[in-house]
Amino acid sequence: MKKINIKQLEMQGIPDGSNYESIIEAVLFASGEPLKIKQIASIIECNEKHAKRILDNMIIKYNDEKRGIKLICINDSYQLVTKPENSNYVSKLLKTNSRQSLSQAAMETLAIISYKQPITRIDVDEIRGVKSDRAILTLQDKGLIKENGRLDVPGRPILYSTTDEFLKSFSIGNLEELPHLDEFLIKNEDSDDKDL
């Protein structure tokens, strides 16, 4: 196997491997949007497995160090975000509070959509027992849910599902990480037993 000349690689603009993290950090910062692992691997000119190892290591470093940002992975896309404990200070800078809490109705609606997606508004209404029009509008405005096609029945009602913003807001990497509903049933049964 031919030995790689690091100096030659650097002169050609190809990273030697020691500054991959720096390059990834700069690219993610400049992008501002999530980048797929495939895209990152292409940029740093290595295979996806190696890029994933570097990114996983970076996630650990950001979490361990006292930094104002962290690296997250959502559906195989990576993004730099503000740590939750610093969001109030960033809001002061932006003079907005986009993370206003959701109403009870919006939270119920979001929970139903997250577990039953894709789902129609009518199905959400039936589960909740009340209309959910306003809650769905609020969730769409906040970018937590989106239209995801139409059901193939007369009237073709809109189907709703959660977004990557939902995953980011609740610090979930993908939908498989949602707690199983069985966990909630066990907790509720335990609290009911304590009341007796």
Rank of each mutant, 00 (worst) to 15 (best):
I4D: 08
I4C: 11
I4S: 07
I4L: 13
K7S: 10
K7A: 08
E10I: 15
E10C: 05
G13K: 02
I14E: 06
P15W: 01
G17W: 03
G17L: 02
S18H: 11
E21W: 04
S22D: 10
I23K: 05
E25G: 06
A26M: 08
V27E: 03
V27Y: 01
S31A: 12
S31M: 06
P34A: 02
L35Q: 08
K36M: 09
K36S: 12
I37T: 07
K38P: 03
A41Q: 02
S42R: 11
S42V: 10
E45N: 12
C46R: 04
N47L: 03
N47R: 09
E48I: 04
E48T: 01
H50Y: 12
A51I: 02
A51V: 05
K52M: 08
K52D: 09
R53E: 13
R53A: 11
I54Y: 07
I54S: 01
D56K: 10
D56G: 04
N57V: 03
M58F: 00
I59N: 00
K61G: 00
Y62V: 03
Y62E: 00
N63Y: 07
K66P: 02
K66L: 10
I69R: 03
I69W: 09
I74Y: 03
N75F: 04
Y78L: 04
L80R: 01
L80S: 05
L80H: 02
V81G: 05
T82Y: 01
K83E: 09
S87L: 12
S87W: 05
S87E: 12
N88M: 07
N88S: 15
Y89L: 15
V90L: 14
V90G: 08
K92R: 11
L93M: 10
L94G: 03
N97K: 11
Q104F: 15
T109C: 12
A111Q: 03
A111S: 11
A111V: 07
A111H: 03
I112H: 05
I112C: 13
I113Y: 03
Q117N: 06
P118V: 01
R121W: 02
D123V: 06
S132L: 09
S132H: 05
D133H: 11
D133T: 13
A135W: 01
T138I: 13
L139Q: 04
Q140F: 08
L144P: 03
N148W: 10
G149N: 08
P154W: 06
D164K: 12
E165T: 10
F166Q: 03
F166V: 04
F166G: 00
L167E: 05
L167A: 03
L167D: 07
F170H: 14
F170C: 09
S171Y: 14
I172L: 15
L175G: 06
E176R: 15
E177P: 02
E177N: 14
E177K: 14
L178F: 13
H180Q: 13
D182H: 14
E183F: 13
F184M: 14
L185Y: 13
K187H: 13
K187R: 15
N188M: 14
D192W: 11
D192I: 14
D192A: 15
D195E: 15
D195S: 14
